[in-house]
Design a protein around this nucleic acid. Structure first.
Length: 432
RNA sequence: GUGGACGUAGCUCAGUUGGUUAGAGUCCCAGAUUGUGAUUCUGGUUGUCGGGGGUUCGAGUCCCCUCGUCCACCCCA
């Protein structure tokens, strides 16, 4: 068998699938453009300290999931586990965040050393949007509306939007203290993971899946009750804005994020069709991060979406890429015809930039060539033999092009055209 | 990182309580078909049975280790 295999969790993406990937990226680029977001392209490698400082030293991502190594100079580098930290770093490095507003998006691979599962890989891909320099709830509404429109443009339905507010840093700290005090009274009854989190990341106890822990949490103080007045007003305006746009949401006071930089608004698009990987897009406000990374205080909101999960949903819902099948396949018989066919094909590609054309290579019998032509998905076979070349003509044969039922006529229409007629015939094919 | 299920041809899978040269369908190749892709028919190619070790006269089958996929936990998008 294979002597080599790919690194665990690092997957190849092959032709039938790549068409859907391209479709998704095309739709995303169009959707971002509709809101005036500009694309930022970021490196895959950053200094490790960037992630430790932004995501949080004691988060699971930083503690045990990063691909970190030393380069030849002894610097500690990390394959980026997410895109927000790099976006802020680049924004600061190039002055993008200096007294101005920015709307940015990115797409690309991220890396986390987790145990792979369907919808969860060690190299995975995210689409993300970030908005800087705008403090009001209106930009929260915009960026959520953008995510909603992206899902709609992709044709993905059945998603649920969950919403919560983590409040200001001060309110969150006060709530955290109250929550810890409450949980400590019930520490003995908590599940093991929650007991561990109690002192490392107590807010994450809130979305424990243990039924017993959830039962205890029923009587716990809630984040929403602990909200400071300003955050409450912000949150209410956000909800009003979403309602104005007809975007349905549900409040989930247990919704928290695993990255430390979030505050106030947090949200998640979820599905129940992806098993344990139900989060398809998630984000929130992170007003403190720019300052934490050395900039001046700058309000910010953003989200990231898992491309593989979007694609799984699209496949489950029968969404396909627009037809990218080859239009025509050129069969040749004889040496003169082979050379003529290559020249003819180049002329046709000059004339029709959108034409997708394969010229048979390696010769072979006509029957075998036609079989390949049919299998390529081409709708037309152009048959060129030495006789046709001498006469300045070409045989044009319609193919079934696709999975036809057994009752469908086996042989398509066939006609012989002079070369000068070919462009008109192909133009008709491209219009269809 | 923890627990569990599963790995047999390119693909989908059978393979009995351990028993000779490991099978089917599909795909691919050739022929029937005179220079024409469906179907049909005939013939053919394809395997380190994931890998390594062990038990046994004998292992695809039993045991151990390992790699991989999937599921749940965990984590998160």
């Amino acid at each position: 068998m294979n002597r080599f295999q790919s690194v665990r969790g690092f997957n190849d993406i092959l032709p039938p699938d790549t068409a859907l990937w391209q479709h998704l990226h095309a739709v995303a680029a169009r959707t971002f453009a509709a809101y005036g977001y500009g694309e930022i392209r970021l490196p895959l490698l950053e200094h490790t300290a960037l992630f430790a400082r932004s995501i949080g030293e004691v988060t699971d991502i930083v503690e045990k999931e990063m691909f970190t190594f030393q380069d030849r100079e002894g610097d500690s580098l990390t394959l980026r586990p997410e895109g927000t930290a790099s976006t802020v770093r680049a924004g600061l490095e190039h002055g993008l965040l200096h007294n101005q507003q920015q709307r940015l998006w990115y797409a690309g691979p991220m890396f986390r050393h987790e145990r792979p599962q369907a919808g969860r890989y060690r190299q995975f891909h995210q689409l993300g949007a970030e908005a800087y320099g705008m403090a009001g709830p209106d930009i929260d509404v915009e960026i959520i509306a953008l995510s909603a429109r992206l899902m709609r443009n992709l044709g993905i339905g059945g998603l649920k939007l969950e919403l919560n507010s983590l409040g200001s840093a001060a309110a969150r700290a006060a709530y955290r203290a109250a929550l810890v005090a409450f949980l400590e009274r019930h520490a003995a009854s908590l599940d093991a993971d929650s007991q561990r989190r109690l002192h490392t990341n107590p807010l994450r106890v809130l979305d424990s899946k243990s039924p017993q822990t959830q039962a205890i949490l029923r009587d716990a103080p809630t984040l929403l009750d602990a909200l400071d007045a300003e955050s409450r007003a912000h949150f209410e305006a956000l909800q009003q804005g979403l309602s104005d746009l007809g975007i349905a949401y549900t409040l989930n006071p247990r919704l928290v994020r695993g990255l430390d930089y979030y505050g106030r608004t947090v949200f998640e698009w979820t599905t129940d069709r992806l098993g344990a990987q139900g989060t398809v897009c998630a984000g929130g406000r992170y007003d403190g991060l720019v300052e934490q990374l050395g900039g001046s205080p700058t309000p910010a909101v953003g989200w990231a979406s898992g491309v593989e999960r979007l694609l799984l949903l699209m496949k489950a819902q029968g969404i396909a890429a627009p037809d990218s099948a080859v239009h025509a396949y050129v069969c040749t018989l004889g040496e003169a015809a082979q050379r003529a066919a290559v020249r003819l094909a180049e002329q046709l590609r000059d004339r029709f930039p959108a034409l997708r054309l394969i010229v048979n290579a390696g010769g072979g019998k006509l029957a075998a060539q036609l079989k390949r032509a049919d299998r390529s998905g081409a709708r037309l076979a152009l048959i060129l033999g030495d006789d046709e070349v001498a006469a300045g003509g070409v045989q044009v044969k319609s193919l079934r092009a696709g999975t036809a039922g057994p009752t469908e006529s086996p042989s398509g229409q066939q006609e012989t055209l002079p070369w000068t007629e070919l462009p008109r015939r192909l133009a008709g094919l491209l219009d269809a």
